[in-house]
Design a protein around this nucleic acid. Structure first.
Lengths: 354, 354
DNA sequence: CTCCGTTACCCAAACGTTTGCGCCAAACGT
DNA sequence: ACGTTTGGCGCAAACGTTTGGGTAACGGAG
């Protein structure tokens, strides 16, 4: 079409328009190149990706599987993936699997049916059967968020994160602690828990089995997990919840039991999602570089696509201490509240109408 | 390939494999059909979507633009879209625009370059210039989440939702209220605010300009919005925040000022995201059917693609009353806390160590 | 026996690229 | 002046489908 108008052959035009810098040498004479370029953007020409994919057997498409996009952690990781992909001229399909093996299988087939060049799994299960199959089929992929087996992955150093949380609580003198450990098939929960447990064991304070409960990763799950914890045995002095949403649910459960987070019991979450800081009692949380994880995950995949060997990356977590676990910060919060009520400075309280 | 092995022509095989129920009559004899089907799934044959798209000029691809996927509202809407799309054999590209007009433009071109069949915008701005252009180019699309101009959209009845919030607060005797109204270009914030304002005006209590502040939709934005509100004039007795995340930020700001939500001041949010119920003081919120909105948005688009005229749908919101605005529920919460502390039943308080 | 309708296929073009090969002419070396 | 290189481009096949238009064989009706 654009070739006809210029009396050139389509192959010439193709070379002019799509030759990569390095190999454009034998393309065409500079006047021709100019003419082609000019007409191309006059006509608003856009290469047809289907024709290209058909011919080259490369789609520049990446399939991404996550448990749930409505989990802000996965959504943020995906944002990182998508951003990096766009920068590389790649497009991404993302889809929810709800952590259900059947759905994982079905969606993987679906995505592969779309002829993606590679995949990124954010929903790996510790049981690696499925991923081994995928790998055996020669599908290039990397993992993010959760690791599994020896497959290349970009994850937070969850074990270290767990240790940091433990270190913090140990420093505050906690001896009887409990864990809401998330789903038993997720390396995130597993590693965070084991790091935490490990550190306490090293301190001579092994954490008994019944102090560890599993639960879903959403707020509801954290709520239920905490309920089970509260139903058995005496109240622990602190609870480590392996993700912030779970922590929020846990806080809800504690509230239902009339417990004040930060005063009656300490809570530490994981991920440092944007909400953590805004909670009525700000939540101590281990920050994981979610966005960065997505970006690196994609880059890792690109490398794998280029034939390199993927290798697992551990990203460094960071402990953010807030009032939910820190007595001093909690006291400061209290003080502010009293000030707000005018109790400390003698002014009258604001007109509470509720 | 599969044709060769059977000594059939590729066109015959194509007809056998891909004929839709209604038009499969002239396909082939039943023994042939059997043979083809059998070999097809022995070989794990999958139709090449690129070849198909190239030939038919239809990609079965939908492009979706949202402000941010890490906003749980948009993520949930997208989940609805994706679910419905998958059920229809469609795939979706989703991408963040961060509500930046330049990015919206760039990403739209990008998505269109992928030859999608249609688009869904979750990030429409009230200024319809851009969407008008897209429509003029003949791109089929629908809006979700936010409406704009006369373009077909599937949204929550936000005005009604605002009225519900107002009704609720009026019923509780609030007379001096304020609004954190979100971004000024988003119909969600605009409509929710105007419904709320309208209802108060009808009650003879017009809300003055300075009681309405705009802000970003994330927690940080809600925090800042509330700060500005608190900086000017006397404390209102209630604050309506047009989205839950903003409400959480607002609650954070109130906390910083030593105010107790539910006691010193009432807060009402919007969307009823899963966190609302789990907050230390559960948040009253107007529930919007986010998932359903996504599903319907996709169906609407499918109809548009089939040549029908799209028409805007308003989904019904529902008010969920919780302790952040309801004195009785708040009192009950208080009571529970006291019980938990053992003050009411004479048992000793749990061992608070923090 | 002819004619027609039906059944069960095949044929070939087309969708828009990419890419190895080859051709022509001009430039270059000797 | 005569090979040889090389720059500039055309040729054509191929990627895997879809689809309108055949055609051959067959059966039955007249």
């Amino acid at each position: 079409m654009i070739a006809d108008q210029l009396g050139l052959h389509v192959s010439t035009v193709s070379r002019v328009l799509h030759a990569k810098p390095g190999e454009g040498l034998r393309a065409a004479s500079s006047p021709t190149v100019e003419r082609v370029r000019k007409l191309a953007d006059e006509l608003g020409y856009q290469r047809n990706p289907h024709a290209m994919s058909l011919r080259t057997q490369r789609s520049n498409l990446i399939g991404v599987l996550v448990p749930r996009l409505s989990d802000v952690v996965l959504a943020t990781i995906y944002e990182g993936i998508e951003e990096a992909a766009a920068a590389q001229g790649l497009s991404t399909f993302v889809t929810n699997t709800r952590d259900l093996p059947d759905v994982q299988r079905a969606r993987t087939e679906m995505v592969l049916g779309r002829r993606v060049d590679g995949m990124i799994f954010g929903d790996a299960h510790a049981d690696t059967g499925f991923l081994d199959e995928v790998a055996a089929r020669g599908v290039p992929f990397t993992l993010v968020n959760r690791r599994a087996g020896r497959h290349p992955a970009v994850v937070c150093d969850d074990r270290l994160g767990g240790r940091m949380a433990a270190e913090h609580l140990l420093g505050l003198g906690h001896e009887d602690v409990a864990i809401v450990a998330g789903e038993p098939y997720a390396s995130t929960g597993i590693d965070r828990t084991s790091g935490f447990v490990e550190r306490f064991r090293e301190a001579g304070l092994p954490i008994p089995e019944h102090r560890i409960v599993h639960s879903r990763f959403d707020a509801r799950g954290g709520h239920e997990g905490a309920e089970r914890l509260l139903a058995t045995g005496p109240l622990p002095s602190a609870i480590f919840v392996v993700n912030d949403f779970g922590a929020i649910g846990t806080i809800g459960a504690l509230r239902d039991h009339g417990l004040r987070v930060g005063a009656d019991i300490a809570v530490v979450g994981f991920n440092d999602t944007p909400l953590a800081a805004e909670l009525p009692v700000p939540l101590t949380s281990v920050r994981s570089p979610m966005h960065e994880m997505g970006r690196r995950g994609l880059h890792q995949l690109v490398r794998v696509l280029e034939g390199e060997q993927g290798e697992t990356e551990l990203l460094r977590p960071e402990l953010i201490i807030r009032a939910s676990s820190d007595p001093e910060l909690y006291a400061a919060l209290k003080l502010k509240r009293l000030a707000g009520l005018g109790i400390l400075d003698g002014t009258s309280p604001p007109p509470g109408r509720v």
